[in-house]
């Protein structure tokens, strides 16, 4: 039975039948590892993040990396064209990906991407929002919840000030952004289910 890769962090959804499972896995890790490192480098630059204990830094990153990657790679999901661009640079239509077995998760990603794009955030706003996403990740395993929540409050306050300054006539923008946090949590849960169901032979 042919297998396909649904994650656009792969070069392409088709698996070269000449490649072994190890080669396919290695190729994915070749994209995944630097992407995670970039998230860590980003986190290090969030004011106050390095003041958290090392344990809490690791646990926040473990819980929040996927959500940050969804924000960063949202533009790969073009809701208007209904295409997904894989890291190899080629676009694949929804119909093509469906025929390969793509699940409902794909629709949820398009929906998230479209709503985020429609907010028309600047680079600075997106960066601050991404910082909020990271520190709003699941708290399980966190030792000092108070410190993480204080950092989250500070960043949300800074985001509200920035959005209010830049979009004075669009008061709903900040609210819409905060509502993306539970959306991201749902996407994270859906993705975890996909990941657990995934087997490479």
């Amino acid at each position: 039975r042919r297998m396909y890769l649904g994650c656009p962090m792969n070069t392409a959804p088709n698996i070269d039948s000449q490649k072994s499972g190890h080669e396919v896995w290695d190729e994915f890790m070749h994209s995944f590892t630097p992407a995670v490192r970039e998230v860590v480098e980003f986190a290090k630059k969030i004011p106050g993040f390095r003041d958290l204990s090392q344990h809490d830094q690791v646990n926040l990153l473990k819980a929040g990396t996927f959500e940050v990657l969804v924000v960063r790679f949202a533009s790969l999901f073009d809701a208007k064209e209904r295409t997904v661009t894989f890291l190899g640079g080629k676009k694949y239509s929804v119909d093509t990906l469906r025929s390969m077995g793509a699940s409902e998760f794909l629709n949820s990603m398009f929906d998230f991407s479209e709503k985020l794009t429609n907010l028309g955030l600047s680079e600075e706003e997106m960066s601050l929002f991404t910082a909020v996403v990271l520190v709003s990740a699941d708290r399980s395993g966190i030792e000092n919840v108070n410190s993480v929540e204080a950092l989250q409050d500070t960043l949300i306050c800074a985001l509200r000030n920035l959005i209010t300054k830049n979009h004075p006539n669009e008061l709903a923008t900040f609210t819409k952004l905060l509502l993306k946090l539970p959306d991201l949590r749902s996407l994270n849960n859906m993705h975890s289910e996909q990941l657990l169901a995934f087997k490479i032979h």
Partner: peptide, 27 residues
Amino acid sequence: FGDPASNLGLEDIIRKALMGNLEERQE
């Protein structure tokens, strides 16, 4: 390969990146 969620080695990548492991970065 077992469970890909743990085989992704997320925690290991995060720890090394947090420590600024130069050797790992050069791979």
